[in-house]
Computed example of a mutant assay.
Amino acid sequence: MSGPSIAEIRKQLEQVDFLSDETRRKLNSDSRKGVRHLLEIWDRRQHRRQALIDRFHKMNHFENDLYQKGIRQVAGIDEAGRGPLAGPVIAACVMLDPDAVLPGVNDSKQLTAPERDRLFDQIVASASAYGIGRVSARDIDRINIYEAARLAMTRAFEHMARHPEFLLIDAMKLPVSVPQLSLIKGDARSNSVAAASILAKVTRDRLMNDLDQRYPEYGFAGNKGYGTPQHLAALKTYGACPEHRLSFSPVAAVIRTEDRR
């Protein structure tokens, strides 16, 4: 009886992260070049996965220090959407399980959209608790973007089903009665903050995709509200929509031009 086909072996290797010595020996001694090539691909994938695991442990420095002090409920907070000309600013507060290992968690800006979507699902499934906060474009105009980002972060914290004992926050201090540490570039230094950056970014991107259905002329699904040349051209052609931040200079300039007409 013949052994498994190359297609069957490929499927098996895609589903496992460990090979016994006996399985590896059989694959290495298989007369088919394609099988040995699949083993090489598997080895490279596992090497990359191990590098991501090592990076995760390295980025858990702040969390581990707190765990060792008996503080187990640690949450990270970050926001997405300070720079765009349209749409809300979104923040997330994420409390990871101390035993969780999520290879690939990183500053959301360093990840591709498919990577962020995959990690979003993993974070939501494994987090001890998380919350999302949102501040609209109109409120951004009313209180300014810095205060809006802080308000979104505060709302994310308030929306958690269970509040943490300590907060790690990306370059911000919040008006909440929980001990906190502000970390410059925290999304690249702390897994909790990086996880929050992913939840905030994916949530906001999905909202902008929805807004693209309502205001397709601005291309929000592609530019996510940032001032790309195509977005600026649409602003000049169509003016501002209700989701534009009227206090941001490129939008304000268009409004002043319309007023002069």
Rank of each mutant, 00 (worst) to 15 (best):
S2H: 04
P4Q: 14
S5T: 09
I9R: 14
R10P: 02
K11H: 11
K11D: 14
L13N: 06
L13T: 10
E14H: 06
Q15V: 03
D17E: 14
D17K: 03
S20K: 14
T23A: 10
R24V: 10
R24G: 12
R24A: 12
R25A: 10
K26C: 09
D30S: 14
D30C: 09
D30E: 12
R32S: 09
R36V: 12
R36N: 15
R36K: 13
D43A: 14
R44F: 05
R44Y: 02
R45L: 12
Q46R: 08
Q46C: 01
R49L: 06
A51R: 15
L52H: 15
I53V: 14
R55N: 02
R55W: 01
H57S: 00
K58G: 00
E63P: 08
E63Y: 11
N64G: 00
D65V: 04
D65F: 00
L66I: 04
Q68L: 15
I71Q: 10
I71T: 13
Q73Y: 08
D78E: 01
E79A: 01
G81V: 06
G81I: 07
P84D: 05
L85V: 07
A86S: 10
P88C: 09
A91E: 13
A100E: 12
V101A: 04
V101R: 03
P103T: 04
V105N: 00
N106M: 00
D107S: 00
Q110A: 05
L111E: 02
A113I: 05
A113R: 10
R118N: 05
L119G: 02
I123N: 02
I123A: 03
S126A: 11
A127D: 05
A127M: 03
A127G: 03
S128R: 14
I132Y: 06
G133L: 13
R134A: 08
S136H: 08
S136A: 07
A137S: 15
R142S: 09
I143V: 15
N144E: 07
I145Q: 08
I145L: 06
I145P: 14
Y146T: 13
Y146P: 00
M153R: 12
T154A: 10
R155V: 06
R162W: 00
R162Y: 00
P164V: 06
E165F: 06
F166I: 06
L167I: 10
M172S: 13
M172L: 14
S182T: 04
L183C: 03
L183E: 00
I184L: 14
K185L: 00
R189E: 05
V193K: 03
A194Q: 01
S197T: 07
I198A: 01
A200N: 07
V202I: 08
V202C: 05
V202Y: 01
N209H: 15
D210G: 07
Q213E: 13
R214N: 09
Y218D: 06
F220C: 08
N223P: 06
K224D: 01
K224I: 10
G225V: 07
Y226L: 02
Q230N: 08
H231Q: 15
A233F: 03
A234M: 08
A234Q: 09
T237V: 15
Y238K: 03
G239A: 08
G239I: 07
C241H: 06
C241E: 04
L246Q: 14
L246I: 10
S247W: 13
A252R: 15
I255G: 03
R256D: 15
D259Q: 11
D259T: 09
R261E: 08
R261W: 15
